[in-house]
Design a protein around this nucleic acid. Structure first.
Lengths: 341, 341
DNA sequence: AATCACACCCAAAGCGCTTTGGATATATCG
DNA sequence: CGATATATCCAAAGCGCTTTGGGTGTGATT
């Protein structure tokens, strides 16, 4: 059942039927009702490809996922982000198109998407420090929103970021206030913008307290449970081990916890753990008193909002760049306590 | 730069250029080379929408993700599956189209996809016992592959499943052999086909050993860490607590471990844990001796394979249904040991 | 020299939709 | 009543590609 068939059934021209369906004013209310009725009765669905060929708009948003050997983008954080963005898209009638591409193909794919407008806009995931993708996309004129930020100022393009620097400064400050002086930082890969900022925040708070950064107490790596475990194990072997850990992800925090328990140390009493919590749906940190003290910001909510921002920009091409920075909340859980004497 | 422009530059008709690019034989080698050359030089990329409108093929595969309030499909397992499937798609030049849809819209979305062929085929995620989607898709004539199985026989459609029943029977048998008689089952939601089968496998092994199933030792729920923790806590409060746990996911196993550690119990010595392991990239169960004893099957590999199967079916419409069942391997880790006397 | 078979190329239709630029009928107005 | 709006509809072109159904020129065959 296509437009032509439907219009024949109605004894109208395709033009009129198209206008009736798309809410143009040049059609009487009576006919419009008749058309809408028939469309429903015959289960008419416009062919999206034909529609987008004619209009130039595709009603679909691209997410390009680098398939790196070095770095795993398809991670749990990504999944929750997608879920959030997907909600927004489906409400607005948009589709989501995922391309998993090897690093070396990434630029090519962007150019391709831009050249024949396969998508109306794209979301940039996992920005690195001074990420080249931003410049490329600006040059290509393809609307985009970055989840995170690539540069310090983040001027000239749209992004939504958590105030990672402030969050980690606050977290560190909180641990310092509890008397901790040796804090192990278990960070993400620091070429990633978010991890870089977290590192800076951590050092901000340390230096404000007159403490110099200690490389022995800092790790950067893929944020997995085994990584958290390994990092904590190493640091706990030091002559003067940390009395607290600050981790960049929930999974890493779980690894740290395991390292403590290996040694019969109790989190929150013997050693404190403070983690960033992305509020992943299947890693809830809830309960009367949450398990972990955490700086918290929902990545799913971020997905929803990024998608909204992008749709705004896509529907209004001269929309000014939208930039949003979210403050993480610091929630108290069971995993922190005063530094042991 | 489109076909027409390119053909003008070459002084050829669009027909010939199209044929040259798509490898038809009706064009001389010399012209073909000339065309391919020019295409590269001018960065010509055929417009996918126009192409698919003309051919009827879209070069894209749909993944429909139910956005349920009850059940969270966008979970870590899903992310890894997507990563695997995405690899296959990108190699074959296909795109992946994700639709996050509310439960009540699911059938509508399938009908829509089928009616105007927005995708060449789809992957069905998270089949439930006697899942109505199978029948619907068969009726719609849209090629599809199920990750899992909906019915016992699984006849008449394509699927790739882990032998969940056998895996859990083996796992249970293994625990029984170690002397465990009270085994806590921490399963997924049992309306899901995979969880249902795992339950059956568990009971197979129990009854083979002359042990009746004990409802007090069985839980079914969303496979999260807190769920694993809560389930284990409850069971450990029983008068005769289990000496071993069999869990359906790595995250749940981590919750169980935490419950043990809360009580000062050591996994593998005081209480055993055996889990299903999907070999998620960020939850590696590796090392000289893995942390957990597990029945293991990579969901990422499954994603790759499902995508391959679907592409086979899509490219050859009269392809017979492909059905594959994978045996999980049972790997020994540190989390199991003989039942305490 | 006429015939045939190829190899090579092209014009034009068609995929399903939107949109431009009228056409026609009805209502409004001086 | 004729002129002018206004409301309602339509024919046809166009989006960028593929594909059908020829057409033309060359060399081989008779």
């Amino acid at each position: 059942m296509n437009l032509k068939a439907l219009s024949e059934k109605l004894g109208l021209s395709p033009t009129t039927v198209s206008r009736a369906l798309n809410g143009y004013p040049e059609v009487s209310d009576a006919t419009r009702r008749r058309v809408l009725d028939a469309a429903r009765r015959y289960h008419y669905r416009p062919n999206t490809r034909a529609k987008s060929l004619a209009t130039g708009r595709t009603m679909s948003i691209g997410h390009v996922i680098p398939l790196s050997t070095k770095h795993e983008m398809v991670n749990p954080i990504f999944a929750d982000f997608i879920a959030g963005a997907g909600e927004t898209y489906s409400r607005a009638g948009y589709d989501m198109s995922l391309s998993v591409v090897r690093d070396e193909d990434e630029a090519r794919v962007y150019r391709e998407l831009a050249q024949n407008r396969s998508v109306d806009g794209i979301i940039v995931h996992g920005p690195r420090v001074d990420d080249p993708r931003i410049g490329l996309l600006q040059e290509l004129g393809l609307p985009f929103v970055v989840h995170g930020r690539a540069s310090e100022t983040g001027a000239g393009y749209s992004w939504l970021d958590v105030n990672n620097r402030r969050a980690f400064a606050r977290a560190t400050r909180f641990l310092l206030d509890l008397g901790h002086r040796r804090i192990g930082l278990v960070n993400g890969i620091e070429t990633m913008s978010f991890a870089h900022r977290r590192r800076l925040g951590h050092e901000d708070a340390l230096s404000a307290a007159g403490i110099g950064p200690d490389p022995a107490l800092m790790r950067a790596g893929e944020m997995t449970e085994p990584y958290g475990h390994a990092a904590a194990c190493e640091m706990l072997e030091l002559d003067r081990p940390p009395t607290a850990f600050l981790t960049s992800s929930f999974l890493a925090a779980m690894g740290v916890r395991r390292a403590l328990e290996d040694r019969g140390l109790k989190p929150g009493r013997d050693v404190s753990i403070l983690t960033h919590d992305d509020v992943l749906s299947y890693l809830a940190n809830e309960g009367d008193v949450p398990l972990y003290t955490a700086v918290r910001s929902s990545v799913r909510a971020a997905g929803r909002r990024c998608a909204e921002m992008l749709l705004d920009i896509v529907t209004d091409p001269d929309h000014a760049p939208i930039q949003e920075i979210w403050e993480a909340e610091l929630v108290l859980g069971q995993s922190t306590g005063p530094a042991p004497a």
